[in-house]
Design a protein around this nucleic acid. Structure first.
Length: 555
RNA sequence: GCGCCCAUAGCUCAGCUGGAUAGAGCGACGGUUUGCGGAACCGUAGGUCGGAGGUUCGAGUCCUCUUGGGCGUACCA
């Protein structure tokens, strides 16, 4: 739809230039938007304001001149006006909107999808939590935002793959293994002293130990720690990772790929990346360690990639990992980070440059913390003591739809208060139900229609001319705005725009529903209104699908 | 100290990459249904967009300074 409107303005510009009223302008981006006040028109362009300086003309005069070149009565244009400092406003005919509405229903599940695929292969990495314990609420937000962004980008025409990077290397894994080993010994009555404070305290460690005991009994008791640790590490990691996969699956988050950090060491990728950088002088030795010259690429300072101990840092394998992403053909890398990792962004951008790519290829999305509340009271959490609310607990309490909605409803770079009591409440305070209720309500109207023997869905073409109320056109316009919402939120990588849009959309509907009856004695009008509601229902369903939230027919 | 993020109605937040008179939900107050689900609808009150400059036709949005909060500033991941 937007393209059509832009074309109208482009023609006007060409017309004015052709008539010699204006120097033929250089390639210019035509910006079309909707006026704030519906009375001003349906579409508006600031074309004259933008051109006024170059044309050395007063923007209002310029606007008036351009407006002359817009053919009223053609292409759905009902009237043209100039307003304010020089906006050109278009009012479209009702026939134009009725036709557009038919298209929405014809598109069905594809309403909102980009008309053409974008030529971009995007790798979207998110969650990527260490497999050292269950996912907590903060991970849940990252999972919801990442998953939604993946769905959104696909709808917007990007070729997207989602990926979970498993940090299965490093000291944390050793501590996980050792924690399990110690619990195992406790379990069998052979504790080796106090359980260390810096080890994993959570109950799940004991569960893993119990699992091992069940399978192997006391087989490991009389063997040295060095000997058994690899087994405990691997078993614990697999157990934890299995739990993470299950929790994410239950949360409707499915990754296209699970990428193990270990494989980057196994196949020599890490060494290869390091050598490559060293040959180009971006890696050097100092103080017995190896450094990346990231300061040459706008990072605050150089970063250690190989410690004095000879051990590679996490950052080191991350270089190889991101190189690997590019080598797999991705042209755009999006990583979701917890807000506490924001300091990591400049060095990743530096890595991209050092590797010979444009720094803008890498894009980080920061996801701020979640404060869990219960009836206004903050729920205290502490990772160290193992006292934290897990994602699966939250999902079990409030349900997947609600949890996802709450995680998605705010811009990801603002702190989020997640109140469990509010989330559970089936009240107007709960926006999830507000939207889902609209969908259920529409479905119920369809049932009523069928009960009253209205042929629905209709066999042939529906005459939409009975649609005549202002509210009906407000609703149609809102429905037609959906593709643009998708496009813009994908472009801005801001998922919260989708729930906001749906809330607005559905608010228009609830008002309309209250005021007008759909199924009446007036057959043609009933059909036309049912048709309108079908377009609306499709839009709600598609919007909720982008969020991974169900569109119930009954509640 | 330096860097990043945030600051908009009593509360929680939008504000579409600089546009027209700054919006919504909740809370408060007052209303709405002999018909499709009241998990709904309508109305009222509520603002110097933290503050001060600047950029221009035009700033909540961009720049500088400043105040208050969050986070970071590892040879941890």
């Amino acid at each position: 739809m937007k393209e059509q409107i832009e074309e109208i303005f482009r023609q006007a510009l060409a017309g004015a230039a052709g008539a010699g009223e204006l120097a033929a302008p250089a390639d210019i981006d035509i910006v079309v938007e909707k006026p704030k006040d519906e009375k001003l028109g349906d579409f508006s362009s600031n074309l004259a304001l933008v051109l006024s300086r170059a044309a050395q003309k007063n923007p209002r005069d310029l606007a008036g001149m351009l407006a002359e070149h817009i053919p009223v009565g053609e292409g759905g244009v009902e009237s043209v006006s100039v307003a304010g400092p020089g906006f050109i406003n278009l009012k479209m005919s009702r026939g134009f909107y009725r036709e557009r509405l038919k298209q929405v229903v014809a598109e069905g599940e594809r309403h909102g999808y980009a008309p053409a695929p974008k030529n971009q292969k995007v790798l979207l990495e998110f969650v990527s939590a260490n497999p050292t314990g269950p996912l907590h609420v903060g991970h849940g937000r990252g999972a919801a935002v990442g998953d939604c962004l993946g769905r959104l980008l696909k709808v917007a025409g990007y070729d997207v793959r989602t990926e979970y990077y498993i940090n299965d290397v490093g000291n944390q894994m050793n501590i996980l293994g050792r924690s399990t080993w110690l619990r195992y010994r406790e379990l069998l009555g052979r504790p080796s002293g106090e359980f260390p404070e810096d080890h994993y305290q959570g109950d799940y460690i004991m569960d893993i130990a119990r699992e091992i005991e069940k399978g192997h009994g006391g087989d490991f008791l009389d063997r040295s720690e060095e000997e058994v640790l690899p087994f405990f590490r691997k078993t614990a990691a697999n157990w934890v990772l299995g739990g993470i996969k299950k929790d994410l699956g239950d949360f409707r988050v499915h990754f296209d790929n699970w990428f193990s950090e270990q494989t980057l060491y196994d196949d020599g990728s890490v060494d290869r990346a390091l050598n490559w950088l060293r040959e180009r002088g971006f890696v050097y030795d100092k103080d017995g360690a190896v450094w990346l010259k990231s300061s040459a690429f706008q990072d605050d300072k150089d970063r250690v990639v190989v410690k004095q101990s000879g051990e590679q840092t996490y950052f080191c394998s991350d270089i190889a990992y991101h190189q690997n992403k590019i080598e797999r053909g991705f042209t755009r890398l999006i990583d979701l980070f917890g807000a506490d990792h924001h300091g990591y962004v400049p060095r990743m951008k530096a890595v991209m440059e050092a590797l010979g790519y444009d720094r803008s290829v890498f894009h980080a999305i920061l996801v701020q913390f979640v404060t869990l509340k219960r009836g206004g009271e903050k729920v205290q959490m502490s990772t160290r003591s193992g006292q934290f609310i897990t994602l699966s607990e939250v999902v079990a309490e409030v349900g997947v739809d609600v949890a996802r909605y709450f995680f998605l409803m705010r811009g990801s770079d603002t702190h989020l208060d997640f109140d469990l009591e509010l989330a559970k409440a089936e009240t107007p305070e709960n926006p999830v139900y507000y939207i889902q209720y609209a969908h259920a309500r529409i479905c119920n109207i369809f049932i009523t229609a069928r009960q009253q023997s209205v042929a629905w869905p209709p066999a042939g073409e529906v005459d939409l001319s009975p649609l005549a109320e202002d509210e009906e056109f407000t609703l149609i316009k809102k429905i037609l705005a959906f593709p643009e919402v998708v496009e813009k939120s994908a472009q801005a990588l801001e998922v919260h725009r989708v729930p906001h849009y749906l809330h607005e959309l559905v608010a228009v509907f609830h008002g309309y529903y209250k005021r007008y009856r759909v199924v009446t004695e007036d057959g043609p009008r009933t059909l036309a209104r049912l048709f309108l509601l079908e377009a609306l229902r499709i839009t709600i369903q598609n919007g909720l699908a982008i969020m991974g939230i169900s569109a119930p027919e009954k509640m």
